[in-house]
Amino acid sequence: MKNWLNKYFMFFVASLALMSCEKDEDMAIVRAGSEPVLALTTNTVVLTEETAADEAVTFSWDKADFGYNAGVTYTIQFDVADDDFASAHNILVGGSNEKTFTVEELNALLTKLKYEADVAHNIDVRIKASVSDKVNATYSDVETITVTPYSTYIEPGYLYVPGGYQGWSPETAPALISVENNGIYKGIISFVGASGLTFKFTPNRNWDMDYGNGASAGSLAEKGSDLSVPTADTYEITVNTNTMTWSYKLHSWGLIGDATPGGWGADTNLKYDNAAGVWKATMDLTVGNIKFRYNDDWALNYGDDDTSNNILNQGGKDIPIATAGTYDIVFDNENEDGSVTYSVTKK
Rank of each mutant, 00 (worst) to 15 (best):
P320T: 04
N122C: 02
D62M: 08
T268H: 04
T260L: 09
T146A: 07
E236I: 15
F11W: 15
D233H: 06
L285M: 09
W253E: 00
V103N: 03
A322G: 10
N181H: 07
E236Y: 05
D273R: 09
D332Q: 12
A173S: 13
A275V: 06
A276K: 15
R31P: 09
S15E: 07
E35N: 14
L270T: 03
E155F: 07
T102V: 01
A232H: 02
D26E: 15
T268C: 04
L227K: 00
S15A: 15
G218M: 03
A108D: 14
T286K: 04
D304I: 08
D318T: 04
L250A: 12
V13E: 15
T144H: 03
E104Q: 14
T58P: 05
A194C: 09
A108T: 08
G67I: 14
D258H: 03
L176V: 07
P230T: 09
D226E: 15
A86D: 14
K291S: 13
D273V: 10
A173I: 05
K317F: 10
L16I: 12
F9T: 07
S252V: 02
R205V: 04
F85N: 07
F331C: 01
N310W: 08
R126A: 09
N3C: 05
Y139R: 02
Y115G: 05
R31H: 14
G95E: 10
A86H: 13
V142A: 09
N301K: 11
V125N: 00
D328T: 12
A281V: 04
G288A: 05
L270D: 02
W61M: 01
D118Y: 14
S195H: 06
H251W: 14
W61D: 00
S34C: 03
Y8R: 12
T111F: 10
K200P: 02
L197I: 06
K23I: 13
I177W: 12
S219M: 09
V340R: 00
P203Y: 01
I319T: 06
P261E: 06
L159C: 03
I184P: 00
S178C: 08
Y327C: 04
N97A: 12
M27Q: 09
Y153G: 01
T144C: 07
Y185C: 10
M1L: 14
Y165V: 05
D124M: 01
S195Y: 03
M209I: 11
A215M: 04
K200I: 11
D284I: 03
W61Y: 09
E116Q: 11
Y302H: 03
Y294N: 06
K200R: 13
G94M: 11
L5D: 14
F201E: 04
S140F: 12
I127T: 03
A88I: 09
A14E: 02
G288T: 08
I188S: 10
G265T: 13
V125H: 01
R126Q: 15
R126D: 07
T198C: 03
F66E: 00
S178F: 06
T75I: 08
Y302D: 05
D284C: 01
V30K: 10
F9I: 12
G95S: 14
L109C: 12
V125D: 01
M209C: 06
K317Y: 11
N206C: 09
T231C: 02
E236K: 08
Q166K: 09
S34A: 07
P156M: 06
F85S: 10
P162Q: 05
N90H: 12
E55K: 13
L5M: 15
V131E: 03
D124E: 10
D328M: 07
K200S: 13
K346N: 14
